[in-house]
Design a protein around this nucleic acid. Structure first.
Length: 451
RNA sequence: GGUCCGGUGGCAGAGUGGUCAUGCAGCGGACUGCAAAUCCGCGUACGUCGGUUCGAUUCCGGCCCGGACCUCCA
């Protein structure tokens, strides 16, 4: 099956042809670990998890690398504010990130490199860049910086589609005096005694942000690989700088072939961001709905579009899952079948998850109409999307007090048989007040938690 | 100011040059003691003004509106 993806670099939909059809290699920018993940941080994780699941169905081997940024000025700042040692802060936050992403049904990457474990590779890369004239050292008040010379890379600005003039005209930051060109960016910077630092040819210091991804992708995927992903806000400068560094250090290489960027999560029309204070953490959202509903909410919008988050939308995603699970519940024994063609075709077209979900609804319709094959197809399609992995009973009933509920149902049955409908309805209303809904069917009464 | 993306029915959200998205909500009906669930049916959607075309929501241009990036950001 042929896959097509929108390539940010060419701004076009392209047929996906891996460099090695026997081994697809993907790199996605991971979190900076200094605080709990918010839902915006979770979107690329869920989106690219879904992409990886699709790639694994189509290609024999996939290596998925997603880094952890554990050296960064925000981490230093946070540790300074709270007094928590940096190593503890990054370890704890990484564990919280893992737990939150697992709750959203995201499988771990194959390799999760940490920046602090790749300082040597970064230094090697920076030395190469200096040697071939793409980087230079400059002395500031705190010590020696190494900067990338943007002017030395002819293609700079190609990914983000901006000219050098644009970048200079729009510069809102004060330009450090040691820069030869205002657009030059830091590869290595000096650390004071109380900041984390590593010995280097330029003295004790720490890396700039961008070099780590060039170093880690090189180390784990090689100089050329297939897909590089991340949020659209990383397009510039982060990804632009990665390209400049990697392609300059390895002039014969092309770095990533396809760049995929997910759209931003919004709240009330504005980007969700820590700096705006309008974020909801994954924890907040998980307190309001099961992780699976959160995942579905994220997949209901195409990954490249912006997505406006709201709690009512989350509740709607949960109701949608009720319908899927109801369809599965009709057919308790479901053979393993391939993912239906309709679903595959839609995912193969730039990971069109909303269109694929419409196909899942069509399968649910048929399953509710007693088509067991459709139920099996629905389960298979759900599995590809990282959804519908629970047992319907677990989805509908969760951890409610089964014994008490069944006793109430028995009492209500007796009342109904005596045609005491007032009492029967009172029992039903009492359960409803506890969030338990009853459904009378031809084979007796079943119950579920309200959604 | 520069670069880029988008404006679809009550809401969410795909897609297409010429009968259908889909979901949620709503309304009517069937079923039910009443509900719930399920099933059947319903609602003249494509920001605006021009252009191309036999025909445009879909292509092109202007305008209006929203958002992202240009600084840390998923």
């Amino acid at each position: 099956m042929e896959l097509y993806f929108h390539n940010s670099l060419t701004r076009r939909r392209e047929c996906f042809a891996p460099l090695d059809p026997g081994h697809v290699r993907v790199y996605v920018c991971g979190p900076t670990v200094y605080d709990l993940a918010h839902l915006g941080n979770a979107r690329p994780v869920v989106v690219f998890d879904t992409l990886i699941r699709l790639l694994r169905r189509v290609f024999p081997r996939v290596t998925y690398v997603r880094n952890i940024t554990d050296v960064e000025d925000k981490i230093i700042a946070r540790a300074g504010e709270t007094g928590e040692p940096i190593a503890d802060l990054t370890r704890r936050t990484t564990a919280e990130f893992h737990a939150d992403m697992a709750a959203l049904g995201a499988l771990p990457p194959d390799i999760e490199p940490r920046a602090t474990c790749h300082i040597a590779e970064m230094i090697t890369l920076i030395e190469r860049l200096i040697a071939c004239g793409h980087a230079y050292t400059a002395n500031g008040p705190e010590g020696t910086h190494v900067l990338f010379a943007v002017g030395s890379f002819a293609d700079y600005g190609r990914l983000s589609g901006r000219s050098r003039e644009d970048m200079i005209a729009g510069a809102r930051v004060e330009v450090a005096p040691y820069k030869r060109d205002p657009a030059d960016f830091v590869l290595w910077k000096p650390s004071t005694a109380d900041q984390p630092g590593w010995d280097s040819p330029w003295g004790r210091g720490r890396p700039g942000w961008h070099i780590e991804c060039s170093a880690m992708s090189w180390r784990h995927l090689g100089t050329d690989f297939d897909i590089h992903g991340g949020g659209s806000d990383l397009l510039f400068p982060h990804h632009e700088n990665e390209i400049a560094q990697s392609c300059s250090a390895f002039p014969e290489s092309h770095f990533a072939r396809i760049w995929m960027h997910n759209g931003m999560l919004r709240v009330n029309g504005e980007k969700m961001a820590k700096s705006l204070g309008n974020f909801v953490t994954v924890r907040d959202v998980l307190a309001a709905a099961p992780g699976e509903a959160v995942r579905l909410l994220l997949l209901k919008t195409h990954y490249r579009a912006e997505l406006d988050f709201s709690f009512p939308a989350l509740a709607e995603a949960r109701r949608e899952l009720d319908r899927f699970y109801r369809a599965l519940d009709r057919h308790p024994s479901r053979p393993d079948v391939p993912v239906p063609e309709q679903v595959m075709a839609r995912l193969a077209d730039d990971l069109n998850t909303p269109a694929a979900l419409a196909a899942l609804h069509a399968l649910a319709d048929r399953a509710l109409g007693a088509d067991a094959g459709a139920a099996a197809g629905l389960a298979a399609a759900g599995s590809l999307l990282g959804l519908l992995g629970a047992e319907p009973a677990a989805w509908f009933q969760g951890s409610a007090d089964r014994t008490a509920i069944e006793a109430a149902i028995a009492a209500r049955r007796a009342a109904r048989q005596a045609r005491d409908f007032a009492r029967a309805d009172a029992i039903r209303a009492g359960l409803a007040a506890q969030g338990i809904l009853l459904e009378d069917g031809p084979h007796g009464t079943t119950w579920r938690r309200a959604s």
